[in-house]
């Protein structure tokens, strides 16, 4: 049954991808990319990779769509006609594809428990993490404790991406809302958005602090909270949104999150352990692990929220400026 559903979903994925290649209307392409993300997240769900599916649905289908639409508002809707011949690219693609397929011939069989990937560190995580970390969601134990260095790097990457976008686009100045923008004529939408946004924020907090027990965690919670504010900005206009969450505050929050994460690591050093060693944070190692994971997940959440929202502010302010002129 699961294989059959996988196959159907993969088929739909392939058809969507083919359609995206041949469409010239970039607006339609962005929408189909949203569907593409939804379908691939469904495949992840079907493969039991719940945390990955969570991230793909929130980032790939939600934020990426919004940001690509923001880009389209700046650049225009139609793809430029291509005047080059397709012969050389076709050759390159065929050669690369053949090389990749040749490479897969050496890969171990799919899903075999004897595979190197399943023999290396995974058995240790599965057997030891209930005693060492004591969290029901093993993905969180691996991400936040065993691989805390990697995750610190990823958080820093998100932070760096936000800095990069902001240095190119710039944050909007916090202005008195002189120009009414937003979906002004959609009254029903405005009322429903007011009802929905608090629900989304509460759900983001649930995802943030329930990540130890179920799917979720800092990354997803940050994205969902940012999505709530983005919804507010879309419906009520950017000037009002910048009064609720000020761009200046976002700059501080983005760096605070990374600092909270790194400071937790340094705290480990002060208590006589290694960098990012949570065992020493409390008298009981497992309690120490719990404290460390909750604190760094909070740091991740704050950074991701601030980074994504400031990237959106950057795009939206440019789009709004282009719209006025």
């Amino acid at each position: 049954m699961a294989e059959l559903i996988d196959l159907v979903l993969l088929g739909m994925l392939a058809i969507t991808a083919l359609r995206i290649i041949f469409l010239k209307d970039l607006f339609a392409v962005v929408m189909l990319f949203g569907i593409y993300s939804f379908l691939s997240a469904l495949i992840f769900v079907n493969l039991d990779a719940v945390d990955v599916a969570f991230t793909e649905a929130a980032v790939g289908a939600g934020i990426a769509t919004v940001l690509m639409l923001g880009t389209l508002a700046l650049t225009g809707r139609k793809e430029k006609a291509n005047s080059h011949t397709a012969l050389l690219p076709l050759l390159v693609v065929i050669v690369t594809g053949a090389a990749l397929i040749y490479g897969t011939l050496d890969m171990p069989p799919f899903g075999d428990p004897e595979n190197p990937a399943n023999q290396h560190v995974a058995p240790r995580y599965i057997e030891e993490s209930p005693q060492e970390v004591g969290l029901p969601n093993m993905v969180t134990s691996v991400l936040a404790s065993y691989r805390a260095f990697d995750t610190l790097g990823e958080t820093a990457v998100v932070f760096a991406a936000a800095i990069g976008v902001l240095s190119l686009l710039g944050l909007p100045k916090q202005s008195q809302a002189t120009i009414e923008s937003g979906l002004k004529s959609h009254l029903v939408l405005r009322v429903v958005a007011k009802l929905i946004i608090p629900l989304i924020l509460v759900f983001a907090l649930y995802v943030q602090f329930h990540g130890d027990y179920g799917p979720g965690g800092g990354f997803q919670a940050g994205v969902i909270a940012a999505a709530a504010i983005i919804l507010y900005a879309l419906v009520f206009g950017l000037p009002l949104a910048t009064q609720v969450i000020q761009p200046k505050l976002l700059k501080i929050l983005a760096s605070m999150g990374v600092l909270i994460y790194a400071a937790t690591g340094v705290a480990g050093l002060f208590f006589g352990g290694n960098f990012l060693d949570y065992n020493v944070l409390a008298s009981d190692p497992v309690a120490g692990q719990h404290i460390g994971i909750i604190v760094i997940e909070f740091g991740i959440g704050v950074t991701v929220f601030a980074a994504i929202l400031s990237i959106f502010y950057g795009f939206a302010s440019q789009a709004e400026r282009a719209n006025i002129q």
């Binding site: 929408m31 949203g34 939804f38 649905a57 929130a58 289908a61 939600g62 769509t65 919004v66 639409l69 979906l183 939408l189 958005a193 929905i196 989304i200 759900f203 969902i224 999505a227 983005i230 919804l231 879309l234 419906v235």
Partner: peptide, 10 residues
């Protein structure tokens, strides 16, 4: 949730 936000963005 994401579906709704995507719709509004579109």
């Amino acid at each position: 949730l994401i579906n709704f936000i995507g719709m509004i963005a579109v």
